[in-house]
Nucleic acid binder design. Sequence first.
DNA 1: GACTCGATCCTAGCATCGCTAGACAATCAA
DNA 2: TTGATTGTCTAGCGATGCTAGGATCGAGTC
Lengths: 192, 192
Amino acid sequence: MSVQERKERERAARERLILATAREIAEQQGWDAVTTRRLAERIEYSQPVLYSHFRGKREIIGAVALEGATEMAATLRAAAAAADGPRARVTALARAYLEFAARNPAVYDAIFQLDGGLAFAHEDTPQPLKDAFAALLESLGEVAGDGVHPGLFTELFWAGLHGLATLTRAGRLPPQDTEPRVELLVDRLAVL
Amino acid sequence: MSVQERKERERAARERLILATAREIAEQQGWDAVTTRRLAERIEYSQPVLYSHFRGKREIIGAVALEGATEMAATLRAAAAAADGPRARVTALARAYLEFAARNPAVYDAIFQLDGGLAFAHEDTPQPLKDAFAALLESLGEVAGDGVHPGLFTELFWAGLHGLATLTRAGRLPPQDTEPRVELLVDRLAVL
DNA sequence: GACTCGATCCTAGCATCGCTAGACAATCAA
DNA sequence: TTGATTGTCTAGCGATGCTAGGATCGAGTC
């Protein structure tokens, strides 16, 4: 059995290598540069090997998205936990969200923009995605205000953050005013 | 000179045909389906003809985006003009924005998501894009609240709308709760 | 220790993509 | 009618995602 186990370990390691490499190329040169040929060459295997791990490029993006969502949830929770009081928590959360998006644009795109074949807002939504939303809900639910459903409020706040993140990175909003925008967002949306 | 004029008219007509066809394919089957071959076949010319009008596919997307922005600005102004009072105006504007995005997803993507080689948030931003933002500013500036820069407020409100539009269409937000989200957005962000 | 057989991997290739060079035809001025 | 210019098309390049089929290697059996 030991031989089999070793093979499975090696296979799992290779899969991690594929995802790490895909993410690296995507962050450096964009997802368009993540071609199956380039990816295969970087991991020093031939193209078809990729297809023994994933159905195709879409599924690779999806896998990077899931990893990224887990990471993002942890980042958001850490930022919220380090702040005292609802207001500081919400502000810290918002800043952490935008910073994650700015520092990991390719991963952010994989999670929220690209088609990775993932289900959303659904019962069969993958756990990491649900958990990332839960991380938002934990801090935002307490500032939703009376009579407002926490989930609905979280969706709206999230949409605001998502809009700021994507419009800024796509060059549609000048980046220098990010901070006052975040403050205004928190001031207006959150009931403190 | 008349011959020359006729040729220019025909050439302009063909350019409009290219853009209308590109938009049609994009709305029906997505921008990935807008290939130069398919587009050329639909307009009943060979591929290279496209390149005598546009530098490449990017520029076609950009041209569709500019047309779309003009159309969107008109739609937003019409919606705002039909409403009485700041609150009704802002609500109508928000609904019109989201409806435009939902009804013309490909055009919306061309304007706000895809790379059409356009400049944004810049002095050399094309007029239609500036004008679309101006259409938002006209209705939103009056509800920014004291001491808040109207432009900054408009950017934030816009980001909220953009987030709702894109997350909903990408399947990240369930579509049925759009209306309460819009109401909450207006209630919280606008100072009435 | 030789052999079989299944798992694993690679070479080669398909259809399609955006884009372009160069040949050809139509049109105009002289 | 001729010559040049303008317009268009055929054919092809390099690159893409993905796959079929053959080669290779190693584990397990006698």
